[in-house]
Write a protein that binds this DNA or RNA. Structure first.
Lengths: 196, 196
DNA sequence: TACTGTACCGGAGGGTCCCTCCGTTTCGTC
DNA sequence: GACGAAACGGAGGGACCCTCCGGTACAGTA
């Protein structure tokens, strides 16, 4: 989890023990509250839940986006490992499809938090400063490349587009009456379009 | 524009002249402010811009969604007429594609307001009470049906899915570095998947 | 035109949230 | 234990949401 430095993974001086503890608490509270109310949940509620003053929350996470990104980083890491695992599959097209579908499922979890966070990161200049996001992209690109080399997936596609689309589907079907069914149909449509 | 009844198009008793005037002002203000700040703009700012008390705004539009929907109704109507026009095209697949692409373009306008509004409506039970939205759906369904009958578009698709996806693309590429290019690529991918 | 009932106006007010600032507390080190 | 620095936490100013109700002005009637 690395709560050693609050926001980013810079030079990183060592934090005091209480600071480390509080950052972890805020992160846990944020995970809880975001999960309940989406990424526009009250930061004061998060601080309350974490048993921490609002000032402390702001010191560690100077704005909402930083906090969302921090909460989201674990998810990113998990997706990256999952991608690495799928890279060894002997059906590259299926591996890509599986990975993307999992991304979509994930993105509509947490009341759209994951999708929002992902799209936010995609909007910044290539994931901005987030190495976790870069890693995810790299794995995705590899999965896509393998699928393309196997000849079953269109060559003129970029992972950035696919991730964005997959997250868009997750987001747009977030509150749909038949969410699972609809997102699956849309996903299939996308995969259909992806075939070469 | 029909500001005769503020929220919906029910039995509609006649409003007093000042009430009608104020509703129109609020609507105009809302269009302005939503356009600048997206659909989570301040309602008080809208009231200020309209030169109207906040209480007046709330009487005519009891909550934010109603106001967004009212602002959005014109757009909906325009899209519906455009669809009717395209129904006479002799290339049904191209007509569908054109119409959907225009929907997408529209949906990323107004800082995502249109897409949010559309998705909101799709989430309610079949457009809820909005006849404008129902009309849009009906036209879209006809366009799709014609394209399907021409044999160039998959038969197992519903207009609801397509509208949702198209709006999702608009929404997800809203702040993208290369918005137009990216949304076009994603749209093409979708259309590719739509071919039978 | 003056009158009157009422539909409508508008803003004060209580609640929530955002974010900053700074006096106080706690940690780590000597 | 003492001390400097790091971190805490909550008060406070500003913005927003939405409701409520005293006041205003419209639209019929005489």
């Amino acid at each position: 989890m690395d709560t050693g430095a609050g926001t980013a993974q810079q030079p990183e001086r060592r934090l005091r023990a209480d600071a480390r503890r509080n950052a972890a608490r805020v992160l846990a509270g944020a995970r809880e509250v975001f999960g309940e109310s989406g990424s526009d949940a009250s930061l004061e509620e998060i601080a309350r839940r974490a048993g921490v003053g609002i000032g402390t929350l702001y010191r560690h996470f100077p704005n909402r986006d930083v906090l969302v990104e921090a909460v989201f980083r674990e998810t990113l890491d998990a997706a990256t490992s999952r991608g690495e695992q799928l890279l060894t599959s002997d059906d590259p097209a299926a591996a890509l499809a599986t990975w993307l579908r999992e991304q979509m499922r994930q993105s509509s979890a947490c009341r759209g938090l994951a999708a929002e966070a992902m799209i936010m990161m995609l909007d910044e200049q290539g994931c901005g400063s987030s190495t976790a996001c870069d890693a995810l992209h790299a794995i995705g690109a590899k999965l896509l490349e393998r699928a393309q080399q196997s000849g079953t997936v269109r060559a003129d596609t970029e992972i950035d587009d696919l991730l964005r689309l997959v997250n868009a589907i997750g987001l747009a079907t977030e509150d749909a009456p038949d969410r699972a069914g609809q997102s699956d149909r849309l996903f299939d449509l996308m995969m259909q379009g992806l075939r070469s």
